[in-house]
Simulated scan of single mutants.
Amino acid sequence: MKEFYTVGDVQIILGVSRAKAYKIIRGLNEEMEEEGYKTLKGRVNKSKFDDRYMYKGKQRNGVV
């Protein structure tokens, strides 16, 4: 099971260019570093990415 997404993964998931995918990864990795985590260039933590970019259908008062 993958713990990190690569630039290619981000491109496919979001349908963005390679340059945009790198920009997204850099931004998320900066956040991770500010939180005290170590990061890998060109890869982003799957949980952090999913938390920021994947719609989870959070409910409010029983409505999705």
Rank of each mutant, 00 (worst) to 15 (best):
K56Q: 09
E31M: 07
G8R: 03
E31G: 04
I25E: 15
E33G: 04
R60W: 01
K41I: 02
E3I: 03
K41Y: 07
M54N: 06
V64W: 04
I12H: 04
T39D: 07
V7E: 08
D50A: 02
E35A: 03
G27I: 08
Q11Y: 03
T39R: 09
D51G: 05
Y22Q: 15
E33W: 00
V63K: 14
F4L: 08
E31H: 10
Q11I: 04
R26N: 15
G62A: 12
L28N: 13
G62Y: 08
Y22F: 14
Q59C: 11
G27D: 15
R60F: 12
G8V: 03
K2M: 11
K58R: 15
N29M: 10
N29D: 09
D51M: 03
D50G: 06
E33T: 08
F49D: 13
A21W: 04
D9H: 15
Y53P: 11
K41S: 10
E35M: 02
E3G: 03
K38F: 05
I12C: 03
K20G: 06
E31C: 06
N45V: 04
E33S: 09
Y53S: 05
G15D: 06
F49I: 11
T39C: 00
K46R: 15
K48Y: 13
V63M: 09
I25N: 05
S47M: 03
V64G: 07
V10W: 14
F4C: 10
K41T: 04
L14P: 05
E34A: 08
V63G: 02
R52E: 14
S17P: 10
M1H: 05
L28P: 08
E3D: 05
G15Q: 02
E3L: 15
G57T: 01
G27F: 10
G27H: 06
Y53L: 01
K38V: 01
R18D: 07
